[in-house]
C-alpha cells in the first residue's frame, strides 16, 4: 500500500514540476515558435492535472480548446506575423532599388 501512495505522489510531483517547467520555458524562452509549441504541451499537461483532480468535464474542455483551438489559433497568428514581416522586408529591399518607378500610395 505504501508503494502505491509513494508512486502516486511521485507522479503528482513530477506532473506539477513538468507543468511549471513548461510554463516557465514557454514564457521566458527566447524563441517564440518554441514558446507556442511549449504552450500546446502545457495545455495537454493541464488536462492531465484536471484528470488527477477528478474533473473529467474540465479535462474534456481543456483538451478540446487547448489541444484543438488555441494551438491552431496561435500557430496561425504567428505565421501571419512572420509572413508579413518577410513581405515587408522584401518590399523595403525592392523599393530602395527602384524607388522612382513606383507611385507612392
Amino acid at each position: 500500500m505504501e508503494t502505491l501512495t509513494a508512486l502516486t505522489l511521485a507522479f503528482d510531483v513530477l506532473l506539477a514540476l513538468l507543468l511549471l517547467l513548461t510554463a516557465g520555458f514557454a514564457l521566458f524562452g527566447r524563441n517564440l515558435f518554441r514558446a507556442i509549441v511549449l504552450y500546446i504541451a502545457f495545455g495537454l499537461l493541464l488536462a492531465l492535472v484536471w484528470i488527477r483532480l477528478d474533473a473529467p468535464d474540465i479535462a474534456l474542455a481543456e483538451i478540446a480548446i487547448g489541444a484543438g483551438l488555441t494551438g491552431a489559433l496561435l500557430l496561425s497568428a504567428w505565421a501571419r506575423l512572420e509572413r508579413s514581416d518577410d513581405n515587408q522586408a522584401a518590399d523595403e529591399s525592392s523599393q530602395s532599388g527602384q524607388d522612382q518607378t513606383r507611385t507612392p500610395h
Binding site: 500546446i40 483538451i63 478540446a64 489541444a67 484543438g68 483551438l69 494551438g71 491552431a72 500557430l75 496561425s76
Partner: peptide, 8 residues
C-alpha cells in the same frame, strides 16, 4: 484533435 495542431 491531435491532427488539428499538426495541420495548422
Amino acid at each position: 484533435l491531435a491532427t488539428v495542431t499538426v495541420v495548422a
